[in-house]
Nucleic acid binder design. Sequence first.
RNA 1: GCGCCUGUAGCUCAGGGGAUAGAGCGCGCGCCUCCGGAGCGCGAGGUCGCAGGUUCGAUUCCUGCCAGGCGCACCA
Length: 505
Amino acid sequence: MPADPVTSLASAVAASAGAELELERPGEAEHGDYATNVALRLAGARRKPPREIAAEIAESATALDAVERTEVAGPGFVNLFLRDEWFVAALAEMLADGEAFGGGVPGKPERVQVEMVSANPTGPLHVAHGRNGAHGDAVARLFELAGHEVEREYYYNDSGGQMDRFRASVEAVRRGEEPPEDGYRGAYINDLAALKGDPVPLMLTEIEASLDRFRIRFDSFRRQSELELRLPELLPRLDTFEQDGALWARSSAHGDDEDRVLLRSGDRTPTYRAADVAYLVDKLDRGFDRAIYVLGADHHGTRNWYAAVARMLGYDPERVEVLLYQMVNLTKGGEQTRLSRRRGDIVLLDEFMDEIGVDAARWFLVNRGPDQTIELDVELAAERTQKNPVYYVQYAHARIAGILRNAGAAAVSSEPNAPLVAEERELVKRLAELPEVVRDALEKRGPQGIPTYAIRVADDFHRFYHEHRVLESEQEAFRLGLCRATRSVIARCLDLVGVEAPERM
RNA sequence: GCGCCUGUAGCUCAGGGGAUAGAGCGCGCGCCUCCGGAGCGCGAGGUCGCAGGUUCGAUUCCUGCCAGGCGCACCA
């Protein structure tokens, strides 16, 4: 089992108290290292005053080795004050775990597929696609850290009206003509026209290059045209009906918000929704325990469609998960006006990365919860790029790397030579939070807690560093151990959001 | 009209049934004989949209209302 000192302590306290409980870090130092509100929760059921229950729990917890003393406070909180031994043991566990600290061994390891970005290759990626990828990739990394097997997939439409217009536009330019009225235009169309062959794979190659730069690698790609071939076999297995000359899925009867057209009236060609059916079967038949769709909130109307398809086909709908994220709203110079490509404003992912760098770009796009619309002032983002907290966190990492470089072959140990100082204890407690922070982020499919936590870690480290010397101090070995663990935690957090952890800056 | 999301400090946002609601930026004041000052400390700044409800306790949960965003295609 990977180290999780806080949970271990909580279990120990729970055992002595005879009740499930959680520990939290009080806001005030006088309230101890950890506190629990079980007594308040139990008061109703046990029909006893909370402070009375708290006193009993406090009494029994005092017997624990890790606990120096306890107190009952406020309406019935139990505050725990821990001995140095607990901090020393916690650090030792973290160091023993090394890179694995924060990870997990799931009771039931899953094969997870995260399908993300999936922009149709009719043009370069926008910042909104960046949010899709940043979010999806972070969730994927969380699953991996938790011990699951993850594959990243990109799905795209390579046939149909949109792609026809795209190809026609490139062809027109190649003939020296203007793209059709409803076609695509722009510098990239001219660039594609200068190359030979089908523009779709050419465009896809460029998209892949952008994503590679954005540090997202895909394990597989799926094309709509290929999947559609299975439709004649699959559609009869669905709950369908004919109306107005079209074939409909009766998805509203299976949990969807409405029915969907599968085959158009007239030419009976399959819709995108029909291709969804083939794709879902394709995913689930490949044996993924969990198929995750990452979709922009403008697709929220179809969030129940996928599970409905799974139900109609007899699959467990629990295997299908739709992650929604809100829009990215770019403004410039504080004005609420939308950006326009025409004005040469930044809306492309590549331009965004040019402007603020890959690290800040990844950070900005997972920094906020997926349910929150991102309001981004491009001017400020570029101007304040050096003030971005991402650099604050990276700086802490580089600073520690510097100390460890200077330390050379000096001994590293989790055993202290003297009583721990407040900053050391605070830092250990902070590092010990990682397993829970990671679990929480995975559970809510919201990686925004990671950057926030990373800032706190950097904060505690900088404070510790400012107050105490590491090298040539009487606590050198212990503090080097603390540095090593801190660096590892920061590196882990940065990795989870796709940001580099520099040795130097 | 219906559905989803959001309303927390000047700005951008975390948080979330409990003890004095947090961060970054911006603003004000301090700190470099010292392992990296891309740093540290202190301060000003909030009726957590409004009104009810549940609860010993609500900024957090529920309902209604107000405001904003996004959907409601035989586009993807």
